[in-house]
Measured scan of single mutants.
Amino acid sequence: QGDIVVALYPYDGIHPDDLSFKKGEKMKVLEEHGEWWKAKSLLTKKEGFIPSNYVAKLN
């Protein structure tokens, strides 16, 4: 089961498979690959890669 993270900063995706998000948006982490994680937005239901240093895990 994936962790839920919250965006600390907004992110505008650079690549087509990036997931753009707004500050405060919550996402479910699907896979962790070093600095880039695959996640699904709980708001938009879209999936893509996010920079892990832009988010914090919720406990």
Rank of each mutant, 00 (worst) to 15 (best):
Y54T: 04
K38D: 02
L43K: 10
E32Y: 15
W36F: 12
K46F: 06
P10H: 12
P10Y: 07
I14F: 09
E47H: 07
S41P: 01
S20C: 08
E32N: 12
P51K: 05
Q1S: 12
I4L: 09
L42H: 04
I4G: 03
L30H: 04
K28V: 15
F21K: 01
L8I: 09
W36S: 07
Q1G: 12
L43V: 11
K40C: 13
K28C: 12
S20P: 09
D17A: 11
G2R: 09
I14W: 08
H15R: 13
S52C: 12
N59F: 11
A39R: 00
L19T: 02
G24K: 03
V6C: 09
K23L: 08
E25Y: 01
Y54S: 05
D12V: 15
G13A: 14
S41W: 03
A56Y: 13
H15K: 11
D12S: 12
S20R: 06
Y11W: 15
G2Y: 11
Y11H: 05
K28M: 15
V5T: 02
L30D: 03
L8C: 10
Y54R: 07
H33Q: 10
L58P: 07
I4V: 10
K26A: 08
Y9P: 00
E32D: 14
L42E: 06
G2L: 10
N59W: 10
Q1F: 12
D17K: 11
I4C: 07
I14R: 12
G24I: 00
E32A: 15
F21S: 00
A7G: 08
V55C: 08
K38R: 13
E31I: 10
D3F: 15
G34D: 06
K38Y: 15
A39I: 07
E32M: 15
K38Q: 07
E31C: 12
G48C: 02
E47I: 14
Q1W: 15
G2H: 13
G24V: 01
D3M: 15
L42A: 03
Y54Q: 05
A39N: 01
W36C: 08
W37C: 09
K22W: 05
I50N: 01
G2S: 12
N59D: 13
K26T: 10
L58V: 13
K38V: 11
D17R: 13
P16E: 11
F49D: 04
Y54C: 09
G34Q: 05
F21N: 02
K45Y: 13
I50Q: 01
I14M: 11
S52D: 04
Y11G: 01
W37H: 09
G13N: 04
P51F: 04
A56C: 14
K26D: 02
D18Y: 14
L58K: 06
G24L: 03
I4S: 04
K23N: 04
K28S: 08
K45F: 14
P10D: 15
V6E: 06
D3Y: 15
Q1P: 13
G48I: 02
D17M: 12
E25Q: 03
D12K: 14
N53E: 09
K28H: 09
K23R: 11
Q1K: 13
Q1C: 14
E32W: 11
K57A: 09
G2V: 10
V6R: 05
L42K: 03
K40N: 04
Y54M: 09
D18V: 10
V6Q: 07
W36Y: 11
A39V: 15
L58I: 13
K57T: 09
I14Q: 12
K26W: 15
E25G: 00
M27Y: 01
Y9N: 05
I14S: 10
Q1A: 14
P10N: 15
M27L: 12
A39Y: 01
I14Y: 10
V5Y: 13
S52M: 11
Y11S: 02
V29F: 04
E35V: 13
Q1V: 15
H15G: 14
E35P: 11
P51S: 03
L43E: 09
I50F: 06
K28G: 04
Q1D: 12
K40Q: 14
K40G: 04
I50L: 05
H33K: 11
F21R: 00
E47G: 04
G24R: 03
S52R: 15
S52V: 09
E35N: 10
W37I: 14
S20M: 06
K40V: 14
L43W: 14
D17Q: 13
H33L: 11
V6S: 04
K57M: 09
L42T: 05
K26S: 07
G24H: 07
A7P: 00
E31H: 08
E35Q: 12
G34K: 05
A56E: 12
A56V: 15
W37E: 02
H15C: 13
G48T: 00
K46G: 07
K23Y: 08
A7F: 00
G13H: 03
L8Q: 05
V5D: 01
I14H: 11
G13W: 03
I14V: 13
K23Q: 09
L19Y: 02
K28W: 15
H15Q: 08
K57I: 10
V29W: 02
K38C: 12
P16T: 09
W37D: 02
K28Y: 14
K46E: 09
N53Q: 12
E35M: 14
K40P: 01
L19G: 00
V5M: 05
K46D: 07
H33T: 09
K22V: 14
E25H: 03
G24S: 04
F49Q: 06
D18Q: 15
K57C: 08
K45S: 14
E25M: 02
V6G: 02
S52I: 10
K22H: 09
V6H: 04
K45N: 13
D12N: 12
E47K: 08
V5A: 06
G2Q: 10
Q1Y: 13
E31M: 08
N53M: 10
V5F: 10
A7Q: 00
V29G: 00
S41V: 03
H33F: 12
S41N: 06
D3R: 13
L43C: 11
L43G: 06
K57F: 13
E32I: 15
K23P: 06
G24E: 04
H15F: 12
I50R: 00
D17I: 07
G34P: 05
G2F: 11
A7C: 05
G2C: 13
P51C: 07
L8R: 06
Y9I: 08
K57R: 14
L43F: 09
Y54I: 07
G48W: 01
D17P: 07
G24F: 06
L43M: 10
E32P: 07
W36E: 04
G2P: 08
V55F: 13
K23M: 08
A39L: 06
I4D: 04
E31V: 10
D12Y: 13
M27Q: 01
L42D: 03
P16R: 08
P10L: 06
W37K: 13
E35Y: 15
K22C: 09
E47V: 14
I4E: 05
A56T: 12
N53G: 13
T44M: 02
K57S: 09
S52F: 07
D18H: 15
L42G: 03
K28D: 04
K46M: 10
D17S: 11
T44A: 03
G48V: 00
A56D: 07
I14N: 09
G2K: 10
A39D: 01
D12T: 15
L8Y: 03
E35W: 13
V55P: 02
G48R: 00
E25S: 03
N53K: 13
D12P: 10
G13D: 02
Q1H: 11
K57Q: 08
V5E: 01
L8V: 07
K22L: 09
L19D: 01
E31D: 08
F21Q: 01
F49C: 12
I4H: 05
H33M: 10
K45H: 15
L8D: 01
I50P: 01
A7R: 00
K40T: 09
M27N: 00
E31N: 08
Q1I: 15
S41R: 01
D12R: 14
G24N: 06
Y11E: 00
N59C: 14
K23D: 05
K26E: 07
H33W: 10
S41G: 02
K28F: 13
E32Q: 13
G2N: 11
K23V: 10
V29T: 04
K46N: 09
I4A: 03
Y11F: 13
Y11R: 06
F49E: 03
N59H: 14
F49G: 04
G2T: 11
M27D: 01
V55W: 02
S20N: 06
S41E: 03
E35R: 11
S52T: 07
W37N: 05
L30P: 01
